[in-house]
Design a protein around this nucleic acid. Structure first.
Length: 274
DNA sequence: AAGTGTATCAACCGCCCAGAA
DNA sequence: GTTCTGGGCGGTTGATACACT
């Protein structure tokens, strides 16, 4: 059996709402507090609109507690994490973001965050693919020129703390960034730290808030900073359980955050002499 | 300045589900 | 138990703005 349409689509106005229509809808809802029957509302409010359209207009635009645009970094992180864990359940995701609607979140994801997500995934894949390139460099001459390194080294993923243009720029210009600062306030522990640089032996300082050699401007590198704050960064934006440790690169484990001894994230940094 | 491509976002479409009849 | 109805949701479209050539 077919379903009866909610309204006579041929005889209702469609398209953008006029300020007068907005006013009429707003007045009606505010006067009645709640709407018991959206289908009946247009007639009562004197609107020549489909009831569903009225509901959508109210929920997504006219509601007084709605926030428009200007998503914060924190909101980005929440959306990203929830999307990773539950997929495109926009209404559930939106319920974690006061003042945001499912439509808003959905649009924001589709137009902006998805690109960041794809960039992240692509970058991680590129990193993995470049590992062998990097290993090959260990037999290269000790000084790596900027051009050579651009061709051979993976780029830094700038994470969600950076805008997309910056992400894209870094992606194609892998040695133009500075080392990200480590924060001390994490449970992160370094189980090993080895790295065979073409020109020198480099290891991570065990206090992990400095990158040995960076002061001299000779070391550049990347870390899988996905923007959640270290070390949470490395747990998200990638299937942490399945990341293979890159041989010959820095190798870290997160004993306090995961139980599996096999669970590791990879980090790597490169030596570049300008 | 004009034409074209791209990004953004409001709005619509159609399906699913729960509850009422 | 079946049918009908409205609410809710995710996917998609289309108009507009903006950027680029």
């Amino acid at each position: 059996m077919g379903r009866a349409p909610c309204c006579d689509k041929a005889n209702v106005k469609r398209g953008p709402w006029s300020p007068e229509e907005d006013m009429a809808l707003k007045k009606y809802v505010e006067r009645h507090g709640t709407v018991e029957n959206w289908i009946a509302l247009p007639h009562k409010a004197g609107l020549n609109r489909c009831g569903k359209s009225c509901r959508l207009r109210w929920l997504n635009y006219l509601r007084p507690d709605i926030k428009h645009g200007g998503f914060t970094e924190e909101e980005d992180h929440i959306i990203y994490n929830l999307y990773k864990s539950m997929g495109s359940r926009w209404s559930v995701i939106a319920s974690h973001l006061p003042g945001r609607t499912d439509n808003d979140v959905k649009n924001y994801w589709n137009t902006k965050l998805k690109k960041k997500f794809i960039a992240t995934q692509t970058n991680l894949t590129t990193n993995a693919n470049n590992i062998s390139n990097h290993e090959n460099l260990s037999s290269s001459p000790s000084h790596v020129t900027k051009n050579e390194s651009s061709a051979s080294f993976p780029s830094m993923d700038p994470g969600f703390g950076h805008n997309l243009l910056e992400s894209q720029r870094l992606f194609t210009d892998p040695i133009s960034f500075s080392l990200p600062a480590f924060e001390e306030s994490s449970n992160f522990s370094v189980s090993q730290s080895t790295y065979d640089a073409p020109s020198s032996s480099v290891s991570m300082d065990n206090s992990y808030n400095t990158w040995p050699g960076s002061e001299g401007g000779e070391i550049d590198g990347f870390f899988m900073d996905l923007g959640y704050g270290f070390p949470y960064d490395l747990l998200n934006g990638n299937d942490f359980q399945k990341v293979e440790v890159a041989s010959g690169l820095a190798d870290f484990s997160y004993g306090n955050m995961v139980s599996s001894s096999e669970t590791r994230a990879q980090g790597q940094f490169q030596s570049v002499t300008y």
